[in-house]
């Protein structure tokens, strides 16, 4: 049962609070997942340590070609940020598709990652961006790629009773790089994705794909990189035929599950091909 609620004013204070509760306290940010998980008994803690008021964590910064998003930054702030719109447009789209305006106004991007749902929209975009989380604990600061933060469905490698994600960083898109975020859901708002696909790619001269990252969800216990498909594309010249082949190859890498609400595995595989093709097309147009 919850006994205490701490509004931390600094990361140090948050870490100290966690430590003094020896594993029985837990970080909370926007609370859109944590409150419900707590109420349903999925999450148990004696104390919640709130990081949403820490000024230092509320910033979106740009330094040395890197974008750094503090752990208290909300989806609304990402969606409205002109820096994100121009240097990581897929993330603005992904955050903009989360829940509803009310949810986006409090829910954080970092929370979207730590909650570790395979199809969490912002997290899917962040994996495509090659994002890295900055994680603080009593031993110091660690950097872990978002892609490696999944221990299972809904299970993060971050231990929120001991560690705080302080920021998420990734390289800003440069000239000749393009991105896309494509999402299929039952409605325009308040609907978890049936599928979502994020692509970031870089074009070299003569329309050669220099590198590409394709991320698909929910088709695995975590946002899934279509690694084999990426290899098919790398170094190849962009043609309609190549994109079609890549989209078919991506489907082979995916293992979606059947959901009564969000479509059968067969249906998801059929449309995944279309979504990957669309996502690649859009990213290529954006890169040109």
């Amino acid at each position: 049962m919850l006994k205490d609620y701490v509004l931390a004013m600094s990361v140090e204070e948050a870490l100290d609070s966690l430590k003094s509760h020896a594993g029985e306290a837990r970080i909370i940010a926007g609370g859109t997942d944590a409150i419900l998980d707590y109420q349903s008994g999925k999450l148990s803690a004696k104390c919640l340590v709130d990081i949403s008021k820490i000024d230092k964590l509320k910033k979106i910064e740009y330094a040395d070609g890197q974008i750094i998003i503090g752990a208290a930054v909300t989806h609304s702030e990402i969606k409205e940020s002109s820096l994100i719109q121009s240097k990581a447009p897929l993330l603005a789209m992904a955050s903009g598709s989360v829940g509803s305006l009310q949810i986006r106004n409090t829910a954080t991007v970092a929370g979207n990652v730590v909650n570790a749902q395979p199809a969490a929209d912002a997290a899917v975009a962040l994996v495509a961006l090659g994002a890295v989380a900055e994680i603080a604990d009593h031993n110091g600061t660690h950097y872990v790629p978002v892609e490696e933060m999944y221990a299972g469905v809904g299970k993060s490698t971050v231990d929120a009773s001991r560690q705080v994600v302080t920021a998420i960083r990734f390289p800003a898109l440069q000239a000749k790089q393009g991105s896309s975020f494509v999402r299929l859901a039952q409605r325009g708002a308040l609907a978890l994705p049936i599928l979502n696909v994020a692509v970031v790619l870089s074009l070299a001269a003569d329309n050669v794909v220099e590198w590409v990252r394709i991320v698909m969800a929910p088709v695995a216990p975590k946002p899934l990189r279509a690694s084999q498909t990426e290899k098919v594309l790398q170094g190849a010249v962009v043609t309609d035929q190549l994109i079609g082949e890549a989209a078919r190859a991506a489907v082979v890498e995916a293992s979606p599950r059947s959901s009564a609400l969000r479509g059968s595995a067969e249906y998801r595989k059929e449309v995944l091909e279309v979504l990957v093709r669309r996502a690649l097309d859009q990213a290529i147009v954006a890169a040109k």
């Binding site: 509004l7 609370g31 859109t32 409150i35 709130d50 949403s52 008021k53 009310q102 106004n105 409090t106």
Partner: peptide, 14 residues
């Protein structure tokens, strides 16, 4: 900002 008060921890209104 519009928020859903059912998922806002009370202390966040500080």
């Amino acid at each position: 900002k519009a928020v859903n008060s059912c998922v806002v921890p009370a202390m966040q209104a500080m």
